[in-house]
Amino acid sequence: MVIDFSSFYDLPREIARIMDEAARPVLISQRRIAYPLVNLAEDHDNYYVDLDMPGVDASQVELTLTERNLTVQGERPAQAGRFFRQERVAGSFQRIITLGAPVDKDKVAARYADGILHITLPKSEAVKPRKISISAQQ
């Protein structure tokens, strides 16, 4: 029996390791899942958008509102030094959220707390459901 100790000896496992590493890219631009993570909710008056983005300088985050889209742009800084482990994503990010109905642009509020950005978008008065009273003719 010949035991092969060449550099190809452990090749299948090496390949598996490389593939595994590649599946979790640290750069946001190379990730398969969109960043940041987003939760969407709605009630009678507002849309609520929550974004999970810890470690971001809130003053550097750009929120742009167009007719139907909310765009979030920002950057997560990378650390300097000798890395022993790097799992946190870094780089610039952008995510576009399409809203179902027009919103009141002047009353949009955003709050950044504990790494989560909470955005409240009030629906514009024109699209809110309303009751119509029927006037009976006699």
């Binding site: 999970d52 810890p54 650390q79 000798r82 482990r85 946190r88 790494g115 989560i116």
Partner: peptide, 22 residues
């Protein structure tokens, strides 16, 4: 939690993402 461990001149920094944790 996603973690970075970085060695700098003065010591080691462990950065850990913990969104929503006060």
């Amino acid at each position: 939690p996603a973690t970075d461990i970085v060695e700098q001149e003065d010591g080691f920094h462990i950065y850990m993402d913990m969104p929503g944790v006060p």
